[in-house]
């Protein structure tokens, strides 16, 4: 709780900077307009103009907030929450491929981690490649995966989810390998003295003790998965999703639309990561592992 005041100060400072930057970046256009109209602007007129342009270089926070409200709350009020102009619709599209990719990536990650922990050959062959795979800027392949899978007849959710999966499996593998190996030699020996089978050792010792590691990696995986989904939407021709809104906004110079999609994406990331954090707290508490 001691941190509330400092955090609020920093956030307030960001808003002040944002408003100031909006004045700075948009003033050229405002001055230009005034010159052509043959008038000159006082300082307060200049500020008012820079905070209310149609296509500003940097929209002021309240303009973005208005746009978000117009495309979410107001749409809900009109009963058209899922119309194509609504950000809720686009967020839903992005969320569904994020979630599918996250689930697939977590599954793949956990399976690989179990294989790596239990099979020495796999540990030595696969682990270096798992790490190397992350030094490759994999997002670069995103458009190609989409196009290729489209050509085979797979379109819609799955191609985007594949990209999310690729980005999210890595943190899970690394975290789970660490987690499954976290039981001490003493504990493993104890299982031996109880004549526990391999599967009993797994379910009753290794898996439970890997949980804190799993949740930490899940948070990273979720954030990565969302980035994958957004980038995966770029080459689909700007049809639907937050990534498509970004691309459409950049084509038509609709900066307010870009920023509102960006803020929506940030909110979505915060909500999803927060959700995992909540599940983590509850699970670890019930397992008696909460710090």
């Amino acid at each position: 709780m001691r941190s509330i005041l400092p955090i609020l100060t920093v956030v307030a400072a960001i808003f002040v900077l944002w408003y100031a930057a909006a004045v700075g970046l948009n003033s050229a256009w405002a001055q230009d307009k005034a010159k052509r109209a043959g008038t000159s602007l006082t300082f307060s007129e200049l500020v008012a103009d820079t905070w209310s342009q149609d296509k500003p270089k940097l929209p002021a926070p309240h303009q973005v907030a208005q746009e978000i409200w117009k495309t979410t709350g107001a749409m809900v009020a009109k009963g058209r929450a899922f119309s194509k102009r609504s950000l809720i619709y686009h967020s839903w599209i992005t969320f569904s491929s994020t979630a599918l990719g996250f689930v697939l990536g977590t599954g793949l990650g956990v399976a690989l981690a179990i294989g790596i922990v239990y099979n020495r050959t796999m540990d030595m062959s696969v682990m270096p490649w798992v790490i190397a795979s992350q030094t490759i800027p994999i997002l670069a392949i995103a458009p190609m995966i989409i196009v290729v899978l489209n050509a085979v007849g797979v379109s819609g959710l799955l191609p985007k989810a594949m990209i999310s999966m690729y980005l999210s499996f890595f943190p899970v593998v690394v975290g789970m390998v660490k987690g499954l190996r976290s039981p001490a030699m003493m504990q493993l020996d104890q299982m031996h003295t109880w004549n526990a089978s391999a599967s009993q050792t797994f379910w009753k010792l290794r898996l439970p003790s890997s949980m804190p590691y799993l949740f930490t990696s899940l948070k990273i995986a979720m954030a990565a998965s969302l980035v994958g989904a957004i980038v995966g939407e770029l080459p689909t021709g700007a049809v639907a999703g937050l990534g498509a809104r970004l691309l459409a906004g950049s084509y038509y110079g609709q900066t307010i639309q870009i920023w509102s999609a960006l803020i929506m994406a940030a909110t979505l990331a915060a909500v999803l990561v927060g959700l995992i954090g909540m599940i983590q707290r509850i699970t670890l508490k019930r397992m008696g592992m909460a710090q």
Partner: peptide, 14 residues
């Protein structure tokens, strides 16, 4: 943790 990559179109514009 945010999808900062979304800033790309804005920065390309600037």
């Amino acid at each position: 943790a945010l999808p900062i990559i979304g800033m790309a179109p804005i920065l390309v514009m600037w």
